[in-house]
């Protein structure tokens, strides 16, 4: 992570605030808190903030605000961030039916890792995953934190159609397909949750970057029950909020780097 974030121009209507050039959770936590703070202030001319692994892209209308003015406002907001503030960790519990018809590649992962299916499920559900960013397709989250013993290379022949909700492993990454799409991840299970629902104009995506995900193993019967509730709009996803100390690294700690 850089000592001070860098401003990078990205054309006449986009300014990138770069915190690091690598995947770095501290950098991501910091840019998430900057994003939250900026979103509260409603800067005229700013269209949207797009967080990625290590930077925050700020899209703006240059007819309403100049890049220089925008940099000043962002600098001021960064200075005002309280590094010792207690943070909140938002966790989405994602039910997943592992193996069987829902996880056709469970056998591959088992063969590659030398672990039983039970052990794979135990390790996959044993940790919380941090969502660095969304991208690739609508609602697809890039997660960090998988137990590396589960790492398995992608399929040699990608599938042409993977159903939405499929949970897979690709190298050291894990994630869930948000819409039907082609892909080469090793599929180990499926969630009945709808990760992207464009008809929900308020909240078309379940997960936001900066959230955590906790996978929970469910039976195929439970899968059907939840799926029915989801399609009738009766299901509300389980969300856990935990207070944590020092989500933002303190500035003195940064100086020491």
């Amino acid at each position: 992570m850089y000592r001070t974030p860098r401003f990078l121009g990205s054309g006449d209507s986009c300014l990138v605030v770069e915190f690091s050039d690598s995947i770095d959770m501290e950098a991501n936590l910091r840019l998430q808190s900057l994003r939250r703070e900026l979103s509260k202030t409603h800067i005229p001319g700013v269209l949207e903030y797009v967080p990625t692994y290590r930077s925050l892209a700020v899209y703006f209308n240059p007819l309403s605000i100049s890049r220089a003015e925008l940099e000043r406002l962002i600098d001021r907001t960064m200075d005002s961030l309280d590094p010792s503030a207690r943070g909140v960790r938002r966790v989405l519990v994602m039910p997943v039916a592992y193996g069987g018809e829902f996880g056709p590649d469970m056998k591959n992962v088992s063969e590659h890792t030398g672990m039983s299916e039970e052990e794979i499920v135990r390790r996959h559900t044993g940790l919380d995953y941090y969502c660095y960013m969304l991208g690739f397709t609508p609602g697809f989250s890039y997660l960090g934190g998988m137990d590396e013993s589960l790492a398995t290379p992608r399929l040699r022949n990608p599938r042409l159609l993977i159903p939405a909700g499929s949970v897979g492993i690709a190298g050291k990454q894990t994630g869930a397909y948000s819409i039907d799409s082609p892909g080469g991840w090793q599929l180990i299970g499926r969630t009945p949750l709808r990760l992207f629902d464009p008809s929900d104009s308020e909240n078309p995506t379940l997960i936001d970057s900066g959230d955590w995900i906790r996978f929970r193993s469910i039976s195929s019967d439970e899968y059907s029950v939840i799926q029915k509730e989801v399609s009738s709009g009766k299901y509300s996803p389980v969300r856990v909020t935990e207070e944590v100390e020092g989500l933002c690294p303190s500035s003195s700690k940064n100086q020491a780097r």
């Binding site: 054309g11 050039d21 990625t52 692994y53 290590r54 892209a57 960013m133 969304l134 991208g135």
Partner: peptide
């Protein structure tokens, strides 16, 4: 290859083959 970041309209990406690609309206977000 960089760690993914945002793609603005008109961004000129250069993959390893050295041929530029200008990203247009249906560009991916990152």
């Amino acid at each position: 290859d960089i760690v993914s970041d945002g793609i603005a309209l008109g961004a000129v990406q250069v993959p390893g083959h050295g041929r530029p690609i200008v990203m247009m309206s249906d560009r991916q977000t990152t």
